[in-house]
């Protein structure tokens, strides 16, 4: 499923919020479909994460 930028403008934002809760609440208040991610930092330090990503060819 790829939704283009055009689709975003035409159908309006349907948002996944990662980070500041305030942004999520403001979107809820505007009745924008929005899901908040209860994000946590990765367990692994960044050098390990980088190697993992490399391993996966990213």
């Amino acid at each position: 499923m790829t939704l283009s930028f055009k689709d975003l403008l035409n159908s309006g934002p349907k948002v996944i919020n990662l980070g500041m809760e305030r942004f999520y609440l403001d979107l809820l208040g505007q009745e924008v479909p929005v899901v908040k991610v209860n994000w946590r930092p990765p367990l692994a330090r960044s050098s390990l994460m980088d190697r993992l990503r490399k391993l996966r060819g990213e």
């Binding site: 946590r40 930092p41 367990l43 692994a44 993992l52």
Partner: peptide, 10 residues
Amino acid sequence: LIKVVETGIT
């Protein structure tokens, strides 16, 4: 395991 260390969800 990779998802665990990536997401921080144990």
